[in-house]
Amino acid sequence: MVVADDLFKALADPTRRTILDELAEKSGQTLFEICSRLSMKHQLGISRQAVSQHLAVLEAAGLVETRREGRYKFHELNTAPLRQIAERWLVADTSGPEKSTP
């Protein structure tokens, strides 16, 4: 079970949210592909080591999982921990969204 603190810390950083955006577009990327997307698509001047550290934070929060395949290592998105947010604030009311009274 991922501690909520790790989850919120992971989501608090804009670069990490961009990494999640890119993995949502295509899950299963090498570190090189993630770095390429950040620098070429998002013009983020960020070192490979820094990206690696961001991925470690995302992995600690359970949002990213790594898969080894032969000699390669791929990073995959896992959205399951985000359910904690929904369960905590959004889905408690099972009657559906209420219209706010004026």
């Binding site: 990327q29 090498t30 570190l31 090189f32 592909e33 490979r48 000699r71 390669y72 290592k73």
Partner: peptide, 10 residues
């Protein structure tokens, strides 16, 4: 080369 390949670096 193993280190490069693991991270997907060409």
């Amino acid at each position: 080369r193993d280190a490069l390949v693991q991270e997907g670096i060409p």
